[in-house]
Design a protein around this nucleic acid. Sequence first.
DNA 1: AATGAATGAGTCTTCATTCAT
DNA 2: GATGAATGAAGACTCATTCAT
Lengths: 198, 198, 198, 198
Amino acid sequence: MARISKEARVQVRLRLLASAAQHFAEHGFKGANINQISVDAGFAKGTVYNYFSSKEELFSAILAVGTEETVRRYRARDLPDNLRDHLQAIVEEDVALVLEQEAMAKVFVRELLSSSPTTRELVHAGIAPLVVLVVELLEGSQSRGELRQDRSATELSTAFLGMITMAYVQNWSSDGRRPTWEELPAFVVSMFLDGALA
Amino acid sequence: MARISKEARVQVRLRLLASAAQHFAEHGFKGANINQISVDAGFAKGTVYNYFSSKEELFSAILAVGTEETVRRYRARDLPDNLRDHLQAIVEEDVALVLEQEAMAKVFVRELLSSSPTTRELVHAGIAPLVVLVVELLEGSQSRGELRQDRSATELSTAFLGMITMAYVQNWSSDGRRPTWEELPAFVVSMFLDGALA
Amino acid sequence: MARISKEARVQVRLRLLASAAQHFAEHGFKGANINQISVDAGFAKGTVYNYFSSKEELFSAILAVGTEETVRRYRARDLPDNLRDHLQAIVEEDVALVLEQEAMAKVFVRELLSSSPTTRELVHAGIAPLVVLVVELLEGSQSRGELRQDRSATELSTAFLGMITMAYVQNWSSDGRRPTWEELPAFVVSMFLDGALA
Amino acid sequence: MARISKEARVQVRLRLLASAAQHFAEHGFKGANINQISVDAGFAKGTVYNYFSSKEELFSAILAVGTEETVRRYRARDLPDNLRDHLQAIVEEDVALVLEQEAMAKVFVRELLSSSPTTRELVHAGIAPLVVLVVELLEGSQSRGELRQDRSATELSTAFLGMITMAYVQNWSSDGRRPTWEELPAFVVSMFLDGALA
DNA sequence: AATGAATGAGTCTTCATTCAT
DNA sequence: GATGAATGAAGACTCATTCAT
């Protein structure tokens, strides 16, 4: 019974994580209710504790999912040697993932300002893969003279990721009106590279 | 200890608001502790309730401060007829205010994603003055052909304000390393108008 | 200024007592709010404490009013030598007083079952004058052979006062429909003396 | 400690109700302490909330017990066709029940004057079965010409039930001296039917 | 492994009481 | 003497966590 059991265990874990992400996204860490998370995942109150030893651990598990998958999917694509296409591919893959895991994405944004050092580190660790990828990309471009040099690649990446994040927030806050998820990648990349000037 | 002057009452209120902003910013609405807010303001735990009838009302009072002051200070300045200077003035004044009221600013950012409709409305109402100002400015510029026309002024303002917000978050998260508060306005405006390309 | 001052003090005290009776009657001892009592009496929060040293003392002062006045008014009347008329006079005077001090009367009834020994004693002391009067009256009647002898005058008085009390409760609970205050004395006395049989 | 039997759950509920009745009877609704109720029932302070969602609901549950059982027991008896015996049977059964559920009975009496409309309605609903029974009995007697006709059956029932209630109060207040529980039914019925006259 | 009853620390809120003005 | 700001004990209620079944 081992294998099936193991597989089943993973499935239960995923259901719990999905439910938890939903609650943490909507109510914050303190406001989320562990028992309700369990119930909404289709189990009884205590069941979370068979998979996570505490609320903190459950929360960490969500942040641990992170942006690795975004990077993996981006790398799996075959792209022309062109910064604009690469950046757009990144945003496209991130949007795709955010749409799949909307709740988890919201948790990240929500906890960006958390005071708890632990939480902050988890958030930073979670988005690190994406940050590293973008910084490397921009550094390469800078060294080829394609990008402005008055700002470090790190600063530029902050602006880029900031624009992505705020586009998400805007979309969530406006119930998905503008920019829509489809046009979001092109919009963000264009604003980032070309600026607003005519 | 009765019959303190009206002025004294206002001062107490401000101390409570400042303490509350700090706590809400650090721990979120649910995580903030009313008693601790009162104690950290230098009073006994029950004292908040002499000034605010509930945690909700205290929270609302913070968000009600809003961005009116930013707009007011911006309008008080005498600026050349130049989009770049106007945008930079806005960011400068906003940064100045954020530095004065850092905790309150964090509360806004933190609650952007709150699920409670009430909270979300309060946040939107709080930043409305700034949004209106920026949209008007960009619309004027668009009509003079200075800005790209493929995006609405509203979308462009989202990008602009998003970059400001994320620059704040970045600064807070990195303990003020880069971009520093001083160079932040020029950085944001340049990225917004000129883009990252060389 | 002494005399006027003294008079004024008494008036203030009475207003506070009246307001307090209202609150104690409606919400019970624990449920009554001292500050509200003061405000409803037309003063500021703390003012009660210039007249009563604690909630307990204020409460006691109400119960101390008692039934002396009922007895006094009854004795002031010139009545034929007839048990029925005497009993009816007692009820009439008590009803008159209850109508004047409805709130205080309700406090008595409400606290009949209070567990606090102090309160219970106060209630008993308050109604003692009336109990004594009725018992004496019934004893005299018994000694003249007018009343049944199988029950002590004390037991009979319990029945009599109980019927009065419950008639009040009934009247209050039914918003004064039946029995009305006017017909109440005759009804109670007749039920007590004659019974329900045809 | 999960999955206790249904029966066990009912037992816990009863223990909580008994403890609650005690507290509400002694201190009134506002004065009763939920935590203490739970502790005195032998549980931790929060346990009440696993069975009742609020203090109000717990209180209602007590009043909901009502006088149905008294009526049921009375109807189960085989009685001669005689008003006096029927009335006495009612009081006997009510006394029996009051002795079993003394605390709950006190709650009823205590809350008769409560200002909260909800509470008052609950009390009235609780005693309704008994009121209906007595009124029907008296109406039948009146139609057979056994009872005085100058008062409605409803008014007469008020007097009867009022005498019962006050006999209880008297007994509780005097620590059970007179009338004793045993002689109470005969006393009340005799006073009600025959009056005090010799 | 899942359940859900029990626990008890923790939090919002009320309010009797004090006392500076 | 009146005021009402400040206090802090107390209490209703929540919920993360434990653990017997």
